[in-house]
């Protein structure tokens, strides 16, 4: 059956100080990347309740990207370390729900790394494209 190319739906959680700002820099630098992600700004990735990620998958996201400051650069000292632990935990949990852990990605992107931001978007979107639609997203879409 001929189908239009699969365009994954990505939800991204980003901290205000580093990664969201890195996204702004990618913009001011006019670095082009595919438009699949919808970014939700948090003050710090420490705010990332694991339930947010599960909710995103339950609502039909094909991938979830979490991005925060590099280790040692966190505006709140160690918020990113907390996010790292939670993402690790989620990666163990996701297969139990039938979701490949590769659909969840954690990246450190600083406010100065517009290029890294754009490359992360490209890389993650390509990865999720390869994985195909999330099993939950297929059922969520009916």
């Amino acid at each position: 059956m001929a189908m239009a190319e699969f365009e994954p739906k990505i939800v991204a959680f980003m901290c205000n100080w580093c990664s969201y700002a890195g996204g702004d820099l990618a913009g001011t630098s006019r670095l082009q990347y595919p438009p699949n992600a919808r970014i939700i700004r948090l003050m710090c990735t420490a705010r990332l309740d694991p339930a947010f990620v599960l909710k995103a998958f339950a609502e039909g996201a094909d991938g979830v990207l979490v991005a925060g400051c590099h280790i040692g650069d966190c505006h709140y000292v160690s918020g990113n370390l907390k996010a790292e632990k939670r993402v690790k935990m989620l990666k163990k949990l996701l297969p139990e729900l039938g979701i490949e852990p590769e659909r969840l990605m954690l990246r450190w992107i600083s406010a100065a790394e517009g290029e890294r931001f754009a490359n992360t978007m490209k890389e993650f979107i390509a990865r999720v494209k390869k994985l195909g639609p999330s099993p939950l997203s297929v059922s969520a879409r009916g």
């Binding site: 739906k9 939800v11 919808r38 939700i40 948090l42 705010r47 909710k55 995103a56 039909g60 996201a61």
Partner: peptide, 16 residues
Amino acid sequence: HFTDEQIYAMIEAALR
């Protein structure tokens, strides 16, 4: 200003 309800609302709206 970053309550669960506010964030969940954004997640839902992002996908629906």
